[in-house]
C-alpha cells in the first residue's frame, strides 16, 4: 500500500524544508527523506533550523507561510508542466522536483522583475540566517549543541562567561607603507 499523502501541515513543512534545502543544501535525514534533496554532505539550512526561524513569531513570516508554500507548489506545478516533468503525485509539487529544477525555479522566483521576488528573497534570507547565525537560538547554546552552520563555518566559541574575547589578535607589526599624502591626523589629505 503506498504511503498516505501528507496532510496540509506536513505538506507545508515539507515544502518549506525543500525550499530551505535549495538555498543551503544538506544531507538526507533518512533514506526516504523527500524534502531534502541530499546533494550536500552534512547538515544544511533545514538541520540548522530554517523552519524554526521562519516560524519564529518575531520574524514576520509565520502567519503567511501556509499561503507562501501553496504558491510555491503552484509555481512548481507550472514549472513542471513547462518542462514536461512527471512529478510524484504523493508529494507537494516543489518537493517532487529534483534539486536542479528546484534551484532553477528559485532562480526564476528571485529574479529581478518577478512580482513576488521580495517574498522569496526574504524566505531565502531567513534560511541563510538560520545557517550562518542560528538566529532562532542563543548563539552560545547553538554552538554548544554543534549547530551545523556555525560549526561548518568554524565560528569560534565564547569564553566560559558567554562573552567573546580574543587575547591573540594581531601580527603585531607594520605590513604596508602608508599613503604618502597621509596627514598628521592619520587621514587622507
Amino acid at each position: 500500500m503506498p504511503p498516505a499523502p501528507p496532510g496540509p501541515d506536513e505538506a507545508r513543512t515539507m515544502t518549506l524544508e525543500a525550499f530551505a534545502d535549495t538555498i543551503l543544501p544538506g544531507e538526507k535525514r533518512h533514506p526516504d527523506d523527500p524534502a531534502i534533496a541530499g546533494v550536500s554532505e552534512g547538515g544544511g539550512a533545514v538541520a540548522a533550523g530554517a523552519v524554526e526561524l521562519l516560524e519564529h513569531p518575531s520574524g514576520g513570516f509565520a502567519d503567511s507561510l501556509g499561503s507562501l508554500m501553496f504558491m510555491l507548489n503552484m509555481h512548481a506545478g507550472q514549472y513542471a508542466s513547462e518542462n514536461a516533468l512527471q512529478l510524484d503525485p504523493a508529494l507537494p509539487a516543489f518537493v517532487a522536483l529534483p534539486y536542479e529544477h528546484r534551484a532553477a525555479l528559485v532562480t526564476r522566483l528571485t529574479a529581478t522583475g518577478h512580482a513576488e521576488k521580495a517574498m522569496w528573497v526574504g524566505l531565502a534570507m531567513f534560511a541563510t540566517m538560520a545557517f550562518d547565525a542560528a538566529a532562532h537560538l542563543s548563539t552560545t547554546d547553538a554552538l554548544a549543541a554543534g549547530h551545523p552552520g556555525l560549526t561548518l563555518m568554524g565560528y569560534a566559541a565564547p569564553e566560559p562567561d558567554g562573552v567573546w574575547r580574543f587575547a591573540q589578535f594581531s601580527y603585531g607589526r607594520q605590513l604596508a607603507k602608508p599613503h604618502p599624502n597621509t596627514t598628521a591626523t592619520g587621514s587622507p589629505a
Partner: peptide, 20 residues
C-alpha cells in the same frame, strides 16, 4: 591591528600598494 587588517595591508603591499 587585528589579523584581518594585517592581511589586507600585506596583500596591498605585495601588490605594490599602500595601506593605512
Amino acid at each position: 591591528i587585528p589579523y584581518s587588517g594585517g592581511l589586507w595591508a600585506a596583500a596591498c603591499d605585495h601588490a605594490g600598494r599602500t595601506a593605512n
